Amino acid sequence: MTDVELARIPAGTVTLHDARRKIRRTVELEPFEIGVFPVTQEQLGEVLGITASHPRRPAVDVSWQRAVRFCNALSEWEGLDPAYAVDGEEVRWHVDSDGYRLPTEAEWEYACRAGSTGPHYGPLVEIAWTAADGVASPQPVGGKLPNLHGLFDTLGNVWEWCWDFLDTERYDDYRVFRGGGFADDSWSVRASVRRGGGPRMTHEDVGFRVARGGFDAVDAAQGWSASADAVAGGRPLPPGWTPRRPGGGPGTRR
């Protein structure tokens, strides 16, 4: 199989911003590993038995649920303990597992920023495929410059699924994706921008990047906790809140 190349990300902190609730929180992170590139069509095809029409392009039209199943299948392929217990639509992350998984939202932003504090870790034209390039589809991975962690395409090319919920008060079970895509303008291709979609939804500009790292904890790690998820939907509704209409759009920008 085509190897999934990982970069070791050191411990550190990242500040996440929830623009709708006007909340900022600082997350302390332990070291972890994350893919140097988004998962490619070739890698997805080899693990899940899908034909790759463009082997070096990022895999897209991949739902959050399928990304989770890919992570487990890749872990089993390499003899690692799967990170996820999947029971129908329910997915539980075994935080102490050393298997492949999706990054948490805090891990993703910290890895993307690579020490930078602005919206981009370099000139956008040099680091990201965006609408300014005039391309009509995702481009082969690694075609632009990496960040200081050696990660390619964290901004632009394709959005990337993360583990976390987007906003349960407003978007039910939507999961976060980050980073911006090939058809987005510069406003959307920023380290802090977040969007999301339902776990069974697919999008032509959404793929994913794997992570690894087990932690000595239960149902909480790297800025995420199951207890926070459980109470999120019970908070008082914020001013101006309106429920998501059935079949509503793919999430929010910030």
Rank of each mutant, 00 (worst) to 15 (best):
H149M: 10
V86Y: 09
V189Y: 03
G207N: 08
F215C: 03
R21Y: 10
R190Y: 02
R244A: 15
P250E: 12
S116G: 11
M1D: 11
S192W: 08
M1Y: 05
G196K: 11
F215N: 09
T40I: 11
D219H: 07
G181F: 00
Q41R: 14
E76K: 14
V189F: 10
T40F: 10
L48I: 02
A19M: 04
L44C: 03
A7F: 01
G233N: 06
S188V: 11
P31H: 03
E107H: 10
E90N: 04
D216V: 04
G45C: 11
S186K: 10
E169C: 01
I50W: 03
L29F: 06
S188L: 14
F182H: 14
R175L: 08
R235Q: 14
D96S: 14
P82D: 14
D184H: 15
G88K: 08
R20P: 00
Q139T: 13
P246F: 10
R254Y: 11
V27S: 07
E76V: 15
P31Y: 01
L48Y: 02
G234M: 05
S63M: 13
L155T: 13
P119D: 15
A7S: 13
E42S: 15
L48K: 12
E105Q: 15
R245F: 04
D98T: 14
N72P: 12
T252C: 08
I9K: 01
